[in-house]
Simulated scan of single mutants.
Amino acid sequence: MGNPPELYYKVLNITRDTPPQEIRAAYRCLVRQWHPDKHPPESKTEAEAMFKAITQAYEALLDQQENRAVLRACSLDAGRRSCASADKGPRATDTEKAAAGARTSAAAPPPPCTPPARESQKVYSSTDVGGGGRRAFAEFSSYVVRKAPPLERKVECTLEELCAGCRKEVRYTRDVVTKNGLIAKKEVTQIIRVKPGWKKGTKVTFEGMGNERPGCLPGDAVFTVSARKHKAFKRQGDDLVLKAEVPLVSALTGWSFSFRLLGGEKVSWTFRDEVIGPGYEKVVRGEGMPVAGGKRGARGDVRVKFDVVFPKNLTDEQRRGLVEILRGCA
């Protein structure tokens, strides 16, 4: 059996210093739990692999114990022969050899105890289902290494929370495997510390705090940051974009405009000598979102984009007046 002993101990959920009687108890408990006849069709394949792997692990550890017992007996016998040779004493008699053999047999633990099966049940062993114990252990190893699927949830934040950072308390329900192998629900509370500048789609992972499945490592709980729609600003990278509508007459003749930043500070602009045309943009440097992972105090910008609102209808008199006014404009 070429599998590492560490994996055998992991299969039986025991440690290296576990005494033989406790190894046998762990084996009996696991084979009862994972006997394929106790599992529904959808999990029977996994149960078969687990059952065979448990049996192989127990047999491997049993062989190791027997080998150690034989080596100890041989060492003792060799020591006695060496002492006898040094003392020029007689060789061991047949009676002594028989007694030594009896002691060696007594030191070995009893063979594995396969749980009793009804006549209608199939009795599984580590050599069943083509390929033998090694294949069974390979199948089991794939279950051990595999993680249960991640439990995914969203955590919604406002733009203000993503700008300043915040502490979010999230509650969710996860599946846990009980001692008897059943699935139970458990409510969990986790704290997520949102850092300033985090973007939509940022993931926070709590390893091993997701759903549990028999034969698998616990899955992770993964929370993905989502951003609530803001009534004024739209985020583009580390910049904040604000769209402002300005009537055509104000865009041509002068206009005053004010708004508040995310932090609450008020910004006011007055346009007198400049004409606001379609696509006109004004920038407030360093008042955007914090740059996550950037230099201390680094921030994006606030970009205000003006949308000139043209009138939908004009009277003939208005048209003639505009022609006279705008005729000389370049």
Results as ranks from 00 to 15, higher is better:
Thr270His: 11
Ser226His: 10
Arg32Pro: 05
Arg146Val: 00
Thr178Ile: 02
Lys195Gln: 13
Trp34Tyr: 12
Arg72Ala: 15
Leu62Arg: 11
Pro150Lys: 04
Thr158Leu: 08
Gly254Ala: 07
Ala84Arg: 15
Pro247Ile: 02
Ala98Thr: 02
Leu261Tyr: 02
Met209Asn: 05
Lys243Trp: 03
Pro150Leu: 03
Phe259Gly: 01
His39Pro: 00
Ala164Asn: 10
Gln65Gly: 06
Arg174Lys: 13
Glu281Thr: 13
Val222Tyr: 03
Val302Ala: 11
Gly210His: 09
Leu240Tyr: 07
Arg68Gln: 14
Trp198Asn: 04
Lys199Cys: 11
Cys74Glu: 13
Lys154Thr: 13
Ala100Val: 11
Arg153Leu: 12
Val170Lys: 08
Gly237Arg: 06
Val11Phe: 05
Ala102Met: 08
Asp238Cys: 07
Lys185Gly: 04
Lys200Ala: 15
Val31Gln: 03
Gly181Gln: 01
Gly277Pro: 00
Tyr280Gly: 01
Leu242Val: 02
Ala117Pro: 00
Asp37Cys: 02
Thr158Asn: 07
His39Ser: 03
Phe140Gln: 03
Glu22Asp: 13
Glu281Cys: 12
Lys243Phe: 04
Ala99Asp: 11
Gln21Asp: 11
Thr45Lys: 10
Lys229Asp: 15
Pro116Met: 01
Gly130Asp: 12
Arg319Ser: 03
Met1Ala: 10
Phe259His: 11
Lys266Gln: 08
Ser268Glu: 13
Thr93Trp: 06
Arg260Tyr: 05
Met289Asn: 07
Leu314Tyr: 12
Glu42Arg: 11
Arg16His: 09
Gln318Glu: 15
His230Asp: 15
Tyr124Asp: 01
Gly130Cys: 05
Ser82Leu: 14
Arg303Val: 14
Lys97Ile: 11
Tyr172Asn: 07
Pro290Gly: 08
Trp255Phe: 15
Arg174Val: 14
Arg213Met: 09
Ile14Met: 05
Asn180Gln: 04
Glu212Lys: 08
Lys234Phe: 05
Ile54Gly: 01
Thr95Glu: 15
Ala107Asp: 14
Glu160Thr: 11
Thr178Phe: 01
Arg171Ile: 08
Pro218Asn: 00
Lys231Leu: 09
Ile23Asp: 07
Thr270Phe: 03
Phe206Glu: 01
Asp316Tyr: 05
Arg24Asp: 11
Lys200His: 10
Glu156Ile: 07
Thr178Trp: 01
Phe140Leu: 08
Thr93Ser: 15
Pro278Trp: 05
Ile276Ser: 00
Ser75His: 09
Pro150His: 04
Ala26Leu: 08
Lys203Asn: 02
Ser258Pro: 01
Arg320Leu: 07
Gly219Val: 07
Trp34Ile: 01
Val176Cys: 02
Cys216Pro: 00
Gln65Glu: 14
Gly79Arg: 11
Lys122Ile: 14
Ile192Phe: 12
Gly263Ala: 02
Trp198Lys: 00
Glu187Gly: 08
Thr205Val: 14
Asp316Met: 06
Pro150Gln: 04
Met209Tyr: 07
Lys154Tyr: 13
Arg16Ser: 12
Asn13Ser: 13
Pro5Gln: 08
Phe310Ser: 07
Ala138His: 04
Asp239Leu: 06
Pro149Ser: 13
